[in-house]
Structure formats: structure tokens, C-alpha cells
Design a binder for these strands. Structure first.
Length: 146
DNA sequence: AGCCATGCACCG
DNA sequence: CGGTGCATGGCT
């Protein structure tokens, strides 16, 4: 399926809040499989490519998209990452729980955007979202809040 | 599968 | 020499 956008809720490690000097976010395999990002050749070790992006404010960024795949070469790694995102994450002060949105490129540039975490937004095991307000009021079905 | 963590190389 | 990212190991 050719989706036009993908997004990920940032982990603490993604944003650097755990003080891991890891600088980027882990891409879940199901997103990698969409081939939303360029396909990386698994026959070579740690294949990568550069991704040019533009955000809603018109700022341009360059991330690296890497497939750490040494598991296919006798090691233990088998995961995708977008790296070199520190500048972007700091520029918008993105934290754990915030969401980064990627839009399929029209020309040379992918689109990047972000959405702040709702304060008090939680997700029930059923997948239903709940926004807690003051005074014990809550809002159910928060799809239209985005 | 996903997140947390780190030794070291590189670079200002 | 301090900050950053690479490449990898470790834990859940």
C-alpha cells in the first residue's frame, strides 16, 4: 500500500532524554516494510542513504536512513534508524510522546512535521484514547482533536 | 521487535 | 577536549 504519510511517537531514547548519544529514531520494521523510505539493499552491510526533508516552516533538514543489518553478516543487529536528527529535535524541542510525521516527497524533499503530545492523553488497552481534563472531566474518542 | 545504552572516531 | 553520531551490545 502506498501511504502518503507515516508517523511515529517518539521514545525517550529517540529524543535523547535518556542521555543516550544515539541521535535519531528507530524505525519500526512494519514502517520500513512499507518502503515509504527508500529501499535499502540488504545484500550489503549497513546500507544507508541521505534523506532531504522540508518542514512546514520551510526549513530544510538532512537525515540519514540506515539499515543496521549485521545480523545478516554474523552479528546481532537487524533494525532501521533515521539518524542525525539532533538539530531538528532540538529546534522544535520535541520530547518523548510527541509525534513526528513524514510525508512522501513530491520532488527531492520529504515533508516533516510534528504533533505535540496531549497533556494527559492516554490510550486504553482497547486502543480507545482518553484525554483527561481538570476536575475529573475526560474526553473520549479524541480522533477529532488531533 | 523495540527501546536503552556505550566505546570510540571524528571534528569544531 | 567536549559534543555528536556510528556501530554495536544489552535488556525487556
Amino acid at each position: 500500500m502506498m501511504r502518503s504519510t507515516v508517523e511515529k511517537v517518539l521514545s525517550a531514547n529517540d529524543t535523547g532524554e535518556t542521555h543516550a548519544h544515539q541521535a535519531g529514531l528507530l524505525i519500526p520494521k512494519n514502517i520500513a516494510r512499507l518502503e515509504f523510505f527508500p529501499k535499502l539493499d540488504p545484500s550489503i552491510k549497513n546500507p544507508r542513504c541521505v534523506i532531504d526533508l522540508r518542514d512546514a516552516a520551510g526549513e530544510e533538514w538532512t537525515f540519514n536512513y540506515i539499515y543496521y543489518n549485521n545480523a545478516l553478516f554474523g552479528g546481532t543487529r537487524n533494525e532501521y534508524r533515521l539518524t542525525s536528527m539532533t538539530e531538528f529535535l532540538r529546534h522544535y524541542d520535541l520530547k518523548e510522546g510527541d509525534t513526528v510525521v513524514f510525508k512522501r516527497p513530491t520532488g527531492r524533499f520529504y515533508g516533516v512535521d510534528y504533533r505535540r503530545k496531549h497533556q494527559g492523553l492516554t490510550t486504553f488497552p482497547s486502543g480507545r484514547k482518553v484525554l483527561k481534563l481538570s476536575g475529573n472531566w475526560i474526553i473520549l474518542d479524541t480522533d477529532d482533536l488531533s
